[in-house]
Simulated assay, not measured.
Amino acid sequence: MRILIDADGCPVVDLTLSIARRRGVECLILCDTSHVFEKPGAATLTVSKGADSVDFALVNLLRPGDIAVTQDHGLAAMCLARRARALDQNGMEYTSGNIDALLLARHTFQKISRAGGRLKGPARRGPDQDRAFAATLERLLDETP
Rank of each mutant, 00 (worst) to 15 (best):
Ile3Ser: 01
Leu4Ser: 01
Leu4Asn: 02
Asp6Ala: 05
Val12Asn: 01
Val13His: 03
Leu15Tyr: 06
Arg23Ala: 05
Arg23Gly: 00
Glu26Arg: 15
Glu26Asp: 12
Leu28Gln: 07
Leu30Ile: 08
Asp32Gln: 08
Lys39Ser: 08
Pro40Ile: 07
Leu45Glu: 08
Leu45Phe: 14
Thr46Arg: 15
Thr46Pro: 01
Gly50Tyr: 14
Ala51Tyr: 14
Ser53Ala: 13
Val59Asp: 03
Val59Pro: 00
Leu61Met: 14
Leu62Cys: 04
Gly65Phe: 11
Thr70Asp: 02
Gly74Asp: 05
Leu75Pro: 00
Ala76Leu: 09
Ala76Asp: 04
Ala77Thr: 03
Arg82Lys: 15
Ala84Lys: 02
Gln89Arg: 10
Asn90Pro: 01
Gly97Lys: 13
Asn98Arg: 08
Ile99Arg: 05
Leu102Met: 11
Leu102Tyr: 10
Leu103Lys: 06
Leu103Phe: 13
Leu104Pro: 01
Leu104Tyr: 10
Leu104Gln: 15
Thr108Arg: 11
Phe109His: 10
Phe109Asn: 13
Gln110Ile: 10
Lys111Asn: 10
Ile112Thr: 09
Ser113Thr: 15
Ser113Tyr: 12
Gly117Asp: 05
Pro122Ala: 11
Pro122Cys: 04
Arg125Phe: 09
Gly126Lys: 09
Pro127Phe: 06
Gln129Thr: 07
Asp130Gln: 08
Arg131His: 08
Phe133Arg: 01
Ala134Ser: 09
Arg139Lys: 14
Leu140Cys: 03
Leu140Met: 15
Leu141Cys: 03
Asp142Leu: 12
